[in-house]
Amino acid sequence: MTETDKDIETLNRLFGEARADYQALRHHAVPPPLTVVPQAKPRPVHRVLAIAAGVAALGVTGLVLLSLNQPDTPPGHRLIAAPQAMPDAPSGRPQFTGSPRPTLSFSRMTFDFTLPQRPDGSSG
């Protein structure tokens, strides 16, 4: 006897009578009318249009989200302004060759340590 046979036997012992009652269970004595209402299926063209509209809506949403999350300029170019952005700025490198070289003069500073005289004429 297999495990399944034992299970069936157990169920039969528990619900054997109820099984016969279940099998005697019937639908309504007077059958309710079978109401067959033809349902209008969506036409293929409408289905294709609906799918296309859905895909388009998803695409637009994705583009909007992408543009909102994107920085204005690429990070590598942010610190260097394009020449077009500064039309008044001189173009090219500054020329220093013709200008005189600036010279710095250092003179030793002197300090005067003479103390002012007191009213009684003494100092220190």
């Binding site: 528990l14 619900f15 099984r19």
Partner: peptide, 25 residues
């Protein structure tokens, strides 16, 4: 007996209930 059977089926998960219904009942 039918009510008791119904209550017994109610205690089972739906897959087990389907198997008991088809295989046994």
């Amino acid at each position: 007996r039918l009510r008791d059977l119904g209550r017994a089926l109610a205690t089972l998960p739906i897959r087990q209930r389907e198997v008991v219904l088809l295989r046994f009942l």
